[in-house]
């Protein structure tokens, strides 16, 4: 017997992250990952629009009702210094906590935007205290060839992803717990 469908949180991000994520979703059985909660940074208005287009592309329109779209405060803008990132990260964590209490996903799919870090930390916390058991999958972006992103490095070092995927063999050699899966794009 097949397992029940799982509520899934999908973290999107500009700069190629969303394109890679939608590429992955297109080969996953969406009926297994239902309902789907899409989250993107509040400053990113393109990603949720792309996700909506993706959801609307399903022939079966009932599937669309299984998708929700949400925005989250960003912990760090591209180019922001690490020092000021501390304050904005705290804000983002509070907001992420609120969203995670509402969603309580069983599966988290993320691929690198900074917004995924607080969400993954909270998911981990929920697991530890027994609020919700979730599986976190992290796919490092194709743009990372030699070094992990900051998000990737944190999740890898803290062992917060149940499975950690990289798209280049050089990275797998450097981070042996990662699974090398080849290029997604």
């Amino acid at each position: 017997m097949s397992p029940q469908p799982l509520s899934t949180l999908i973290v999107l991000g500009s700069g190629g992250h969303t394109a890679e994520m939608l590429n992955l979703l297109s080969v996953l059985h969406t009926d297994r990952f239902t309902p789907r909660f899409y989250i993107a940074a509040a400053t990113d208005n393109m990603s949720l629009q792309k996700a909506r287009l993706f959801e609307n592309s399903f022939i079966d329109k009932t599937v669309v009702e299984n998708a929700q779209f949400m925005q989250i405060y960003r912990s760090r803008e591209v180019g922001q210094s690490y020092l000021t990132s501390v304050g904005t990260t705290l804000m983002a964590i509070a907001h992420a906590l609120w969203l995670m209490i509402k969603i309580r996903p069983q599966v988290i799919l993320c691929n690198g935007p900074g917004t995924c870090v607080p969400l993954c930390v909270i998911a981990f916390f929920f697991k530890v205290v027994g609020i919700r058991w979730s599986s976190t999958f992290y796919v490092e972006s194709i743009a990372r060839v030699r070094r992990l992103s900051l998000s990737g490095l944190l999740l890898y070092k803290l062992c917060m992803a149940d499975q950690f995927f990289v798209q280049w063999p050089q990275l797998q050699r450097k981070y042996p717990r990662a699974h090398y899966v080849g290029c997604l794009m």
């Binding site: 080969v27 996953l28 599966v107 999958f137 499975q163 899966v181 080849g182």
Partner: peptide, 19 residues
């Protein structure tokens, strides 16, 4: 040659117990 997301999808499905 365009990449392929199926290897990741397969690993995710297996981990979650989907056939």
């Amino acid at each position: 040659h365009p990449g392929d997301a199926r290897p990741v999808a397969k690993l995710i499905n297996r981990f979650l117990g989907f056939p």
